[in-house]
Simulated scan of single mutants.
Amino acid sequence: MTAPTVPAAPAPRAARPGTVPLAAKRAARRSAALGLLAWVAGLGFCLPAMWMLLTSLHSEADAATNPPSLTAPLTLDSYREFFGAGSGASPWPPLINSLGASVFSTLLVLVLALPAAYALSIRRVRKWTNVMFFFLSTKMLPVVAGLLPVYLFAKNVGMLDNIWLLVLLYTSMNLPIAVWMMQSFLADVPVSIIEAAQVDGARLPTVLLRVVVPVAGPGIAATALICFIFSWNELLFARVLTGVVAQTAPVFLTGFVTSQGLFLAQLCAASVVVSLPVLAAGYAAQDKLVQGLSLGAVK
């Protein structure tokens, strides 16, 4: 007696040449939708800056119209007024003060943060997690809470309206952030190459400059850029502790809001000029910034 035969399952039909599977079509549509959403979000973030640039190219009368006119004639009068000291003061001293305070404080932060991050990531000290949380706790105090003690100290030591006071303040403000960032970057540096350099007789300064800095260069560049941006944009301390000699660019911008009214076109032109150093630094270091911020994301 023979066993009953079971009919074989039909073979799946092969896809016709040139056809795309349904799952691939859905994935392509999802990717296109996410890409469109990313473009819309990016344009939304860039729209205020584009509007500021357009307003800076209008005259004061056209900039003050409500609703604003997109077809108003373009002019460079606001930039001529800005660089020609139309507001009553030259913009160059505040710009130079901001650049000096930002650059010097950033360099000082890197010099202090690199050995600290090395001790907290590669050659870890005892209770290094407590040290990290101590650095983080220094950022929990509101800046305005320490404004009066800093002002009284600067007044007693005769450092009011002094650019070096801003350098010290910006260094102390950015140092905890720099240590936190560089600690995570230096944790990815292979210990084997450091030990190989030490076997060859390299001391700590040589190890830091010749081994650690080249390997963690993108992370250090990202840290420097962020510290530079924070220093350049700081307003509260600069507004209270400076006057004429050490006035910075953000403080200079507040001079365009006067009792006579708001000079909107000149304010937008000044804002564009003040924003250019940060934009230029970010554009020049964009590849290093992306590499540095992505360090440690993939193991």
Rank of each mutant, 00 (worst) to 15 (best):
L160K: 01
M140G: 12
A238Y: 01
V211D: 07
R26M: 07
L34W: 12
L141M: 15
T55R: 03
P48N: 08
V20R: 11
A297E: 03
L169Q: 06
S90C: 05
V278M: 12
S231L: 03
V240A: 03
T71S: 13
L235F: 13
V143H: 08
V143W: 03
V273M: 09
A196P: 09
V167M: 03
W39M: 14
V240P: 01
L165N: 02
M159N: 03
N66E: 03
A8S: 12
L169R: 02
D188R: 09
P12C: 04
P67T: 10
V20E: 12
S31Q: 00
Y79F: 13
V244Y: 00
F82W: 07
N97Y: 00
A116P: 05
L114I: 15
L289F: 11
L120M: 13
A238M: 01
V207Y: 02
P4F: 00
I177P: 07
V150W: 09
L175N: 04
A41I: 14
A270R: 03
T75A: 00
S192T: 13
V111I: 12
A23N: 08
L209H: 14
Y118K: 10
L175S: 02
F45K: 02
A119L: 14
S78C: 02
T106F: 05
S259H: 08
V20A: 00
T65I: 06
I194H: 07
A284R: 11
V109K: 07
T254H: 04
T206D: 14
F45Y: 10
R239T: 09
I229K: 03
V215N: 01
H58S: 10
L37Y: 12
P205F: 01
V6P: 03
G84H: 07
A61L: 08
A72N: 11
T19F: 02
W164R: 01
K155I: 06
R13Y: 09
S98Q: 00
A23D: 11
D62F: 12
F45G: 05
A32I: 07
N130S: 15
N174G: 13
T55C: 07
A154N: 09
F134I: 15
A85R: 10
T206I: 12
A11N: 06
V240K: 00
N156T: 15
G86H: 05
V125K: 13
A145G: 13
L141N: 11
T75F: 03
C46A: 15
A281N: 08
F82S: 09
Q183N: 09
R80S: 09
R124V: 10
M159W: 13
R123W: 10
L165F: 06
A33I: 10
Y283K: 13
L107Y: 01
L37S: 15
A117L: 04
L141V: 15
T254P: 07
F153A: 14
L36Y: 04
A116S: 15
C268Y: 05
L34C: 10
Y283V: 15
S271E: 06
L293P: 05
P250W: 02
P21C: 08
A24F: 05
L165I: 04
R126D: 15
L108E: 06
L267I: 08
P149T: 13
S59N: 12
F153Y: 14
A280D: 11
N162T: 05
L160F: 09
T2V: 00
L53V: 14
F82A: 08
L152V: 14
L225R: 04
P176F: 08
